[in-house]
Each structure stands twice: as structure tokens, then as C-alpha cells.
Design a protein around this nucleic acid. Structure first.
Length: 429
DNA sequence: TCTGGGGTCCTAGGACCC
DNA sequence: TCTGGGGTCCTAGGACCC
């Protein structure tokens, strides 16, 4: 049966999550910051109206924030991740084919029925999520994913559609495309927009009608695919099977610049531990570790960035194995006198542990120490009591200079018993 | 003073093979 | 002057996404 795509997108997701447990903030401007409280990564509609741009460093909009009494939150990924799962669970209850595209978006496929049927269905879905999770969503429907993205923008922006807009079989489709800037099309970023504008392609409709060979040459097959999707030819299918990640990265900017090796070691160990945990959670192993370091990125004079890769003897998800490799990298990368701002570990060559390629020369003896039971125990304890309950070789000093600055973080309302929200009842007396 | 973190895919160019 | 033809694999860098 022929199907159409629906894109479910949570409105101002992080801001909505914060408001969920602070209902007094409804109707008030709210923003959420990136880690280290660096830039704005989410804004409520009220904050958007104030002209606070997405991605803007906090210090540049301080005046707007203070003057308008904007509520500012550090990012709280435990909370957002948990609420995201809840939204996706509601979708899975209703639909078999769900592609979780990001923390706040999912594609589903819907049967081709009468338009009003689809709209009614989507409206019910929307209401269900609002009721069961409390997060507002918008739903865009179309014959391709790229068009569904555009439909979703309309659903979000134009209040008269009540959060649902259907472009499939819509005779007004070209009018909608004409009103859509080409750089608002999914897959068309800053660089491509420049190229397109130079050829007087300004809207999604212009791109739909652009010369195919030219688009293919200038924007590669990726751009050509986008143009075809605008023409209603579906090129990007629904990916509903969970797949093995290609790489896993854990990196952080430091709260303060670091110069000494001891602190760098601690930071590396901490990030490698997180990366190892991510591997094990997904049941995969990595055979390549890359460590990268950067000094002040906006200070040309003292800037230095470098990376080092190690190929492991065999794929592993064991934290101590990974730490050993990372320490080797750090040793060769470290330069005394540099003010390090950020460090990260990237794991690649990822495979499912069930299909591990054995070492030809190890015969029955594994070359790498197997510490699965230890890792399992570690993960269980940290799962139950919090990520940092048991760690490798890290001091317990409270104020690590490398740890993130997060001064306005909300409680872990839904993932920690000790931080559950408290409902106050009026006294009966 | 202050600028996130985590991913994917594509291409060009180099090294290498027969 | 002129230097084959056809291929694979790997890596770095670019572009994009949320």
C-alpha cells in the first residue's frame, strides 16, 4: 500500500521540557543554554519574539535577558532524554513504523486515505502526546520526507492549522513552496544557499524547478535528491530499524582552561568512561580510538589543535582498555604551556560484539583481557546510583577545573528519586 | 572574561594494485 | 611535446543535520 510520511516535531523541545515542571512559566520567555552555559540552544515562542537568536552566545544577549526577565536554564539532558523517550513511546503505541530522527523529532508513515482522515488522525496523535507526556508537538504530512519537513514548518507557524498540516495531495503545494526560503529546506545549508542564490534560486519552488544537471553538479547527489523530493519523488526512505552507529564521540569544553597533565588525564578518563558506557549500552565494540585536543579556538595566537588515533588489537568496549589507549594518545599529544579548552574522544570501527572478528594469532587465548562481568557490574551500579558512583582513577575533588559550568540546571525530575517534583496541597484546616 | 555536543554522508586526492 | 587503463581503499575536509 502506498504511504505518506508524517513528521512529528516537538515544539521548542528543551524549553517545553523545562516548563512542564514549572507551569508558572507558561506564556513567559524561556531559553535553554548549551553545555557550559555557552549559547542559546532552545527558545520558547515568547523568547523568539524578543529577538533572541538561536545559537547566540549568552553574553551577547545578556541585556535582552535581563530587561525582559527571560528565564534561563542550563541544559538538562537527563530530563530531555527521558521525556523524548516518552513521546516516542506514545508514537510506537499508535504506529508500527517509527523512525526516531532526533531527540525531538520522529517520522512515521501513514496509509494514503482521505486528507481529512489523516488530519483527524494526526490531531488525535497530537492530543495523545499532550495528554500523556505534556509536550506540545506539530505534525507535517507529505509524500516525501523533505516535503513533510516543510509541512511541519507550516503547522508550527500558522496558528489556524492547529498544529497539523497536510501537503500530500494538496493543490496549494507550489504556493507553500514559493513562500519557503530555499535555506529553510531540509538539507540546504549556508553554503548551498549561497550557490543557489547566485543562480537566482531563492525559494523551495525555484529549487524544485531548477535544472537537474546543474543542481547535481553544484550540490552533489545530496542536493539532487533534495530537489527530487521537492518534486514529490521520494528518495529518502523511513529508517525504522535501529542501526549500529558509525562513531561515538564524547567531548566537552572545559569550565576553565587547563594546562597541567594531571587534570587533562582526569578529564580524558572521565570522557572515555562515558564513551565506553555508550558502547556497552548499545551492545557494540570499537576498534579505533581517536583523542583530540584544542586550545583556545578564538585566540589565533595561542591556538593549537591536534589529534591522535590508535587502532586497538581487537574491538572492545572495556573501559580500562580504552583508557590505556587514550593515555598513550594523550602522552604524545600533550604540550606543556598550552591552555587547553576542549578535549574529546572518538570511537570508530564499531561493530556488534556478537560478530567480532577473532585474532588469527591468538588461538584460544584472547589477546585482550576480558572484563565483561566487571563492566556489567560497573554499569549496573552507576545506573542505579548515578553515573559517577564508581569511576576509574579520578579524584573526588569537588571543583574540578575541567568540569562544566552549569549554574542554572533544573532538577532531574523524572530520573532521580531524590529530585522528584513535590506537589503541595492546601491545608485542610 | 564569556562562542555546545554529537552525529552522518559525500567528494577529492593519494597510495596502491594488476 | 609525448608518459595506459581500470580499479580499490583510505583519509581529510566540507557540508549538513538537530
Amino acid at each position: 500500500m502506498k504511504k505518506v510520511f508524517a513528521l512529528i516535531d516537538c515544539n521548542n523541545f528543551y524549553a517545553s521540557c523545562e516548563r512542564l515542571f514549572r507551569p508558572e512559566l507558561n506564556g513567559q520567555p524561556v531559553v535553554v543554554l548549551s553545555s557550559n552555559d555557552g549559547c542559546i540552544v532552545a527558545r520558547s515562542n515568547e523568547a523568539k519574539v524578543l529577538g533572541i537568536p538561536m545559537g547566540e552566545p549568552l553574553f551577547k544577549v545578556k541585556h535582552l535577558i535581563t530587561r525582559n526577565n527571560v528565564h534561563v536554564f542550563s541544559s538538562n539532558y537527563a530530563l530531555y532524554g527521558d521525556l523524548s523517550h516518552r513521546v516516542m513511546d506514545v508514537l510506537r503505541q499508535m504506529e508500527a513504523d517509527v523512525e526516531v530522527y532526533s531527540i525531538d523529532e520522529a517520522f512515521i508513515s501513514l496509509p494514503v486515505t482521505k486528507v481529512w482522515n489523516r488530519i483527524k488522525y494526526a490531531a488525535e496523535l497530537r492530543e495523545k502526546i499532550r495528554k500523556q507526556v505534556g509536550i506540545p508537538v506539530s505534525i507535517g504530512i507529505a509524500t516525501t520526507k523533505t516535503l513533510a519537513k516543510i509541512a511541519n514548518r507550516v503547522a508550527k507557524k500558522e496558528a489556524q492549522f492547529n498544529g497539523v498540516f497536510d501537503l500530500a495531495g494538496n493543490s496549494q503545494i507550489d504556493q507553500v513552496l514559493e513562500k519557503t526560503d530555499v535555506n529553510d529546506v531540509w538539507g540546504i545549508g549556508r553554503r548551498s544557499t549561497e550557490k543557489l542564490n547566485n543562480r537566482r534560486i531563492y525559494t523551495a519552488l525555484d529549487l524544485k524547478r531548477a535544472d537537474e544537471a546543474w543542481v547535481r553538479k553544484q550540490l552533489t547527489v545530496v542536493g539532487a535528491r533534495t530537489a527530487m523530493e521537492l518534486n514529490g519523488i521520494s528518495c529518502i526512505s523511513l529508517e525504522n530499524a535501529p542501526s549500529c552507529p558509525k562513531s561515538i564521540i564524547t567531548s566537552r569544553s572545559f569550565g576553565h582552561p587547563i594546562t597541567d597533565l594531571d587534570n587533562l588525564r582526569e578529564a580524558v578518563i572521565s570522557y572515555v568512561s562515558i564513551a565506553g558506557e555508550k558502547l556497552r549500552k548499545q551492545g557494540v565494540e570499537a576498534d579505533t580510538l581517536n583523542l583530540f585536543v584544542t586550545t583556545r579556538p578564538f585566540d589565533e595566537q595561542a591556538s593549537y589543535s591536534n589529534n591522535q588515533t590508535i587502532t586497538l588489537r581487537q574491538p572492545t568496549s572495556s573501559t580500562p582498555e580504552l583508557i590505556t589507549a587514550a593515555m598513550q594518545c594523550l602522552k604524545s599529544l600533550y604540550r606543556p604551556g598550552c591552555r587547553y579548552r576542549k578535549i574529546g574522544v572518538m570511537l570508530a570501527g564499531i561493530t556488534n560484539h556478537r560478530y567480532r572478528q577473532q585474532d588469527l594469532f591468538s588461538f584460544s587465548q584472547p589477546t585482550v583481557k576480558e572484563d565483561k562481568p566487571l563492566m556489567t557490574a560497573l554499569d549496573k551500579i552507576n545506573d542505579k546510583w548515578g553515573r559517577c558512583t564508581i569511576q576509574y582513577g579520578i579524584t573526588t575533588a569537588e571543583d574540578k577545573p575541567w568540569s562544566m559550568q552549569q549554574t542554572r540546571k533544573s532538577p532531574a525530575y523524572t530520573t532521580n528519586w531524590l529530585e522528584l517534583p513535590v506537589v503541595k496541597t492546601a491545608s485542610l484546616s
